[in-house]
């Protein structure tokens, strides 16, 4: 029965994955094509295997530097964002204090003002803080962009963790930090994995602010480089597609690494224990 059930699921998943991958195949096709026009053929399967786009990208003298910049910014954003979100979400989930509801509301409200005109004041702020041309400035902006969702997600998850666990730990003489560090955080690994991926993505794909704030190509991030293949009249789609693929690989690798934390049963196990 279970095997048949799995067979059905596999059939469904294979069909669904293929359907999902279909549009993305054109991107692959364009990346492995020598010419720079946009692929419009009906057939999304790559018809040639030309590595010149990748060669040009990897051959760029600044490629390594820009990749490092991107990794630095995204990693630091993830670290800062997840850390701050964990502590804040813990407070929102476990404490009752004046301003709690207002704080939660404020988090939601921050997401509501459209970001279209934000570049101008953010530029002034960064200039004032002396963070123009500094990757740290990007980290600051990206982490604050990611934090509201992370707090909400983690708070929701913390709410589901039974308090009995903490009760018993308190009996054993644990302080709040021990509770937070030894009980809540390990149990929340799935949610932390999700927020980490989200924070990483927020920082990883952004290019407008990075292009506006950075005054030197040494300081550009990879998406800025990729976006620079889009011109006013034409776009070099071959380079762009190759760049898009390069940019998506680390995201998938990160997800692959994180997904071992998305396994079930942890909560149940510790309740029993």
């Amino acid at each position: 029965m279970a095997r048949l059930d799995h067979a059905f699921k596999h059939v469904f998943l294979v069909v669904f994955s293929v359907a999902t991958l279909f549009p993305a195949l054109w991107v692959v096709k364009m990346a492995f094509r020598a010419d720079q026009s946009f692929a419009t053929s009906m057939n999304p399967l790559p018809t040639e295997f030309d590595l010149s786009n990748f060669a040009a990208l990897f051959g760029d003298a600044l490629f390594g530097r820009q990749l490092l910049n991107s990794l630095f910014v995204a990693a630091l954003t993830t670290a800062v964002g997840v850390f701050l979100a964990c502590t804040a979400a813990y407070a929102f989930s476990r404490f009752r204090f004046p301003g709690r509801r207002a704080g939660l509301m404020f988090l939601l409200v921050t997401q509501m003002f459209p970001g279209t005109l934000m570049t101008i004041p953010l530029y002034s702020l960064m200039e004032m803080l002396g963070l123009l041309d500094a990757l740290l400035g990007l980290v600051l902006v990206y982490s604050t962009t990611a934090i509201p969702f992370c707090i909400y997600m983690l708070k929701g998850y913390f709410d589901t963790i039974p308090r009995e666990l903490e009760e018993s730990a308190i009996m054993d003489g644990a302080g709040p930090f021990t509770l937070f560090w030894r009980i809540i955080l390990p149990l929340s690994r799935p949610a932390i994995a999700v927020t980490a991926l989200f924070s990483f993505m927020t920082a990883w794909n952004e290019y407008i602010l990075a292009a506006t704030f950075m005054g030197d190509e040494q300081a550009y991030t990879l998406p800025v480089k990729v976006q620079s293949f889009v011109g006013d009249y034409t776009t070099e789609w071959g380079y762009f597609a190759a760049g898009a693929l390069i940019v998506s690989v680390p995201v998938m690798a990160l997800f692959f690494a994180l997904q071992k934390h998305l396994v079930g049963g942890l909560t149940a196990g510790s309740v029993k224990g």
Binding site: F16, S17, L21, M201, A244, S248, F255
Partner: peptide
């Protein structure tokens, strides 16, 4: 499957 299915999110 999971990694394949997040491709739409991963590609710009």
């Amino acid at each position: 499957y999971r990694v394949l299915l997040i491709i739409p999110w991963a590609v710009p």
